[in-house]
């Protein structure tokens, strides 16, 4: 029983982390309907930037944290500016393919600079953040994840539902031409959503780096893990991303614990296919309104 509970808690906390990583992904999808294959690389960028600032440049923690976020924000902004802007108005598949190319570019350049070795951060989280109930324990990192994740969830929810900028972003995702005709600054919307997405991705990169260490292959692998997570929750639902993340996390932990660790990476996809057959737009996704 204790084993089960510990697995459950592990799964929940890893799942929450997946959800957090997926949030930025959903952000981009919500505003521009783009599947971002470079998301894992954005996560990796955040993790490496923090590594450089915190461990190598020896800046103070809060400062390097803020600088990392700012750097990621700028990167997202620049990526949109340089690579995605020329493609406004082109079919989505091109944009998606572009992100595939970007992923290869980023991964290549990170490997070029840092190599494929594992780097680690200094241990800086105070141990009192860890929680323990009986034999089940929660590591400090996961507590931090929980707090950050919840905060962003609420923030984004409010932003998209009520703020004008949020509504503009949704309108662009919905019908780009119509939004353009009404003078919505489509480019600004894209730039903003990429910037915010990169920021969130960078943050989850830092958290992931604390847990597993910093390694390009692992971090960009998380980018792929994000797919079942967001699809499960519904591509355009930020809350769904968190819940999808938790489901995947728990599933992985339980399969890893009870069946076999090698099945761990495949099981999310198998479950995903079955859930999609029942709910084709994910658990919380918007049902497409089609009129011929």
């Amino acid at each position: 029983m204790d084993f089960f509970l510990q697995l459950l808690v592990n799964g929940l906390s890893i799942g929450f982390l997946y959800g957090l990583s997926a949030m930025g992904f959903v952000m981009i999808f919500k505003s521009s309907s783009v599947l971002n294959f470079a998301h894992g690389e954005l996560i990796a960028f955040g993790a490496y930037l923090f590594l450089v600032l915190c461990s190598w440049a020896q800046l103070s923690l809060p400062l390097s944290f803020l600088l990392t976020l700012a750097g990621c924000f700028l990167l997202g902004f620049a990526v949109e500016r340089v690579f995605l802007r020329p493609l406004i108005g082109e079919p989505l598949i091109f944009v998606i393919m572009l992100t595939v190319g970007l992923a290869a570019m980023f991964k290549g350049s990170i490997l070029l600079v840092f190599g494929g070795n594992l780097h680690t951060y200094p241990d800086f989280l105070p141990p009192w953040l860890g929680l323990t109930w009986g034999s089940v324990s929660l590591q400090p990192v996961y507590t931090v994840t929980l707090i950050i994740g919840t905060a962003f969830l609420i923030l984004f929810g409010l932003f998209f539902k009520f703020s004008s900028q949020g509504i503009y972003m949704r309108s662009v995702a919905d019908n780009q031409r119509a939004a353009l005709s009404l003078g919505v600054h489509v480019k600004r919307v894209f730039a903003l959503s990429w910037a915010i997405a990169a920021l969130v991705a960078g943050m989850s990169g830092i958290v992931l780096g604390i847990i597993n260490g910093v390694n390009v292959h692992d971090l960009s692998g998380i980018g792929l893990k994000v797919f079942p997570v967001v699809i499960l929750g519904g591509l355009d639902s930020i809350g769904g991303a968190i819940i999808g993340g938790i489901i995947i996390g728990v599933l992985e932990a339980l399969t890893g614990g009870y069946i076999s660790p090698s099945l761990k990476d495949v099981i999310p996809y198998i479950v995903l296919v079955f859930i999609l057959m029942v709910k084709p737009y994910g658990l919380f996704g918007q049902v497409e309104i089609e009129r011929v």
Binding site: P86, L87, L98, G101, A104, G108, L111, L112
Partner: peptide, 20 residues
Amino acid sequence: APLREFVFGLAIVIFIIFEP
């Protein structure tokens, strides 16, 4: 070796931007 990956990505990106 990573350079190959980089150039491959770059080729795709350039292609899509200039002749989608």
